[in-house]
Amino acid sequence: MADPVLDVRDLHVALHTRRGVIHAVDHVSLHIDPGETLALVGESGCGKTMTALSVIGLVPKPPGVIEGGQVLLGGDDLVPKSDEEMRRLRGDRMAMVFQEPMTSLDPVFTIGAQLMETLLAHRAISRADAHAQSVAMLKRVQIPEAERRMDNYPHELSGGMRQRVMIAIALLCRPDLLIADEPTTALDVTTQAQILELLRELRGEFGMALLLITHALGVVAEMADRVAVMYAGRVVETAGVEEIFANPRHPYTKGLLASIPDLADGQERLATIPGTVPNLLHKPPGCCFWPRCPIAEARCRAQEPALAELAPGHQAACWKASA
């Protein structure tokens, strides 16, 4: 098997705020193989975005501090790299697409300028070539009248179009890894379907690995090869996509899957997870899910379970999962 594109080992990121230390990413390990799509799933505040930001080197410092661990991109540890080195990597070997395409494009520059800027920063090519490649990429992400759109400003485009532009910018330098943070959450369902379809096509064509961050389990089922579920800064379960939907082992994953209303018939009552996501300023001792867990026992309250291999490629951090 090929070496993973991205290998995150025991990453620990803390935010030192006025009111205390938040362990936003709490000893997380992940890996993504070439061409693979890993979905990082969780609710708000579970640390999924912070994990992505530490991979791409955009953790706000302060208050963020990378306390430990490694982020290996093609075997190369990114944690000790300088800002300048990271800047050269971003947009080249790895790129990121954010949730809100309006705020991630600069309103005072044209689409064309922003595309070309990315190319010129990473490649020694002429402006004419950069222009040509930019137009080609806009066409590739199915933006009609690409040539003319180069002169548009972000506000002249719809949300779906802006997200296409963001994807075009991200893919210009053919990165090995694309991180997409809730790329369709701000979009309507028909536009979401278009963007997901586009990502599926491009993923095959460019052969890049995709780290897809989302809270929507439907999107996960449509897109992912493997899934990692995060809760309160930790990865609590990871498995192949079919395995995790068919056979979830962690009670949190089970709860999440049960609580989504789907298009199937005959649901009387939705299953719910009682309570709410814990305040990361004071995490519960032991397993952080036990206050909401239907099967918690004394051990869960005292000791934190580690991720354990339950089946090949299927790990869960739960004392009661192995039984």
């Binding site: 205390g20 814990p278 004071h282 519960p284």
Partner: peptide, 16 residues
């Protein structure tokens, strides 16, 4: 280094 503030052991961490 910012001082590590330990969570209040009495705090109801499981309560909303």
């Amino acid at each position: 280094k910012p001082t590590e503030t330990l969570p209040d052991p009495e705090a109801p961490w499981d309560a909303e």
